[in-house]
Each structure stands twice: as C-alpha cells, then as structure tokens.
Amino acid sequence: MLAYIIRRLINAVITLLVVTLVTFGIFFGVPKITGSDPALLYIGKTADAASIEGIRTKMGLADPILVQYGKFLKGLVVGRDYSSGPDVIHCPAPCLGYSFKTDRLVTPTLLADIPVTLSLAIGAAILWLIIGISAGVISALRRGTLIDRAVMTGALAGVSLPIYFTGLLASAIFIYWLEWLPQGQYVPFTENPGEWFVQMLLPWITLAFLFAATYARLTRANMLETLGEDYIRTARAKGLRERTVIGKHGLRSGLTPIVTVFGLDLGALLGGAVLTESVFNLRGLGYQALDAIRANDLPVILGVTLIAAFFIVFANLLVDLVYGVIDPRVRLS
C-alpha cells in the first residue's frame, strides 16, 4: 500500500513536470517561433529599447527555454530573486514567478483567489451530488414511468444547456425579473457568512444543475446495470427487504463509478471554473486566468495552469486511493 502511494506520487510529480514544460513551451516557445518577443509582450509595444532590454535580463528571457524552465523549477522549490541593477525582488518558495504587468508576485495573487473558487466548487458539488444521484436512482427504480421520463428529459436538456446561457438566464429571472435575490458581489465567508451564502446561491444552483444532469444520467445507467446482476436477484431470493437490496447491495456497486467521475470533476473545477466565474463575476482562479490571458500576463497563466493541473492530478490520485476502500474488487498494488 505504501509502495503504491509512493509510486503514484512520483507519477503525479512527473505529470506536473510535463504540464509545466508544455505550458512553458507554449508561452515562451510559440512566440519565439511566430516571431513575437515575450519581453515586448510583458512591457507593451510603446516601451523604448533600453527598458525592453532591462526586462529581458531581469526575467532571464534571453536564456534558452530549457534554462528558463530550470530556473522556474528552482524558484518553485527554493524561491528566486529577480534583479537587474539596483532593485531586487525576492520571490520566496513556492515561487510561481513575477508578473510585470501588474507588478505583483504570482503566488500570493493566486492564493488570494483560491477561497472564491473553493466556495463555488464545494457548494455546487454538495448540491449536484444530492440532486443528481437521487434523481438517477429514482429514475432507475421507476424505469419507464412518467417520473423516469421526466427526469431523463430534464437531464438531457441540462447537458445541452451551457452555463454561459443558464447563468445569464437565471440572473435575468431571479435577480432582475422576480427580484428574489439581491444584486451584489462576492463576500468572503469570514466577513459575512449570510451574505456569502446569498451571493453564492445562484452560481451554486446553476453550476449544480449542469452537473446534476450528467450525474443523473450516469447514475441511472449504472443502477440499471447493477440491478440486472445475479447477486441482486440472489439478495431478493433470500428474502431481504427491498430497501436492503437497493440500499446495501445496489447502491454500493452502482455508485462506485460515480466516485471516479466526481473526483475528476471536482479537481477540474478547483483549478478554475472559468465559465462560471466569468458569468457570475466571481474573482477566482478561472477569472484570474482569463484576465491574465487577455493581458498576455504569461507568469500568471503559467501559475494558474500549474495549480489547475495540480488539482486534477491530486484528485486522480485521491480517487484511486478511495477506490481501493469502497470497491473490494480493486486491490491496490
């Protein structure tokens, strides 16, 4: 078990290294091929030659890409200094770089965004798990009835509705037309939990609706497959109550595949729900990434991508470990 975890951790680190290398290649390599100068991107087209040269030496942009990549990795582990002449900026580990566009260190900027993304992802996840799984299970148990068809129609509509449409629609209806919810901005939980809840309610519901649709379809399919298994028939034949058959034997193996999907979805969301955050004006990691891409702020983009990949890889690892516990057929080795 311990050997397995260590092996997986090494694998995870390798994946993250490849992700950073690819990101690095895209943002520092592609501009080189297409002939645009990263130093120019940093400082803007109006800068004079001396200040461009200054940026270039300060950022180490004159070095070959692999050297730059090496320095970036070193900064992640032990921190690094950015200096050209008198002013030295120290960037403590884990250093994701320094944004010349905004004159800020990347790591603290991104750390400040994490609570917003975390609030959004966790709240929505709780909602969609409850709604999606119960809708799927009910649909499977009442297969072919009106309820089943209604749930499945709703779920199909749900997977066909993009959040950048439902989000706007929901805001138009609940905030501007019915006026059930107030207009406003994100408020940190630590500042005012009530206001935080009210402001997050609509993003949660909209995001959860989207995922709940997928989960309902998935749960229904899994449950139907499980309920057709021989051991369910055996459980019924030995006289167990229907509730025990479904609750203890059906759900357990019917829901294991959901764990995998859930882990991956949550991991992906934690790395920045770009669309949701953009629609609801939530300044989380996804919003930050978008801002950075629009401003060509390469160090910030690199940082967000790395954090996003970290969440996905970590979620993958967690899913596999949890799987060993909930699914007795899987033995980790």
Partner: peptide, 13 residues
C-alpha cells in the same frame, strides 16, 4: 487529465 478549457483559451490566444 489536463486543464483543457484553460489550455484551449491560452493556445488560441
């Protein structure tokens, strides 16, 4: 296992 949307945005830009 890749932040795909983020990457697409970045790549396109």
């Amino acid at each position: 296992a890749f932040p795909q949307l983020l990457f697409s945005i970045a790549l396109v830009s």
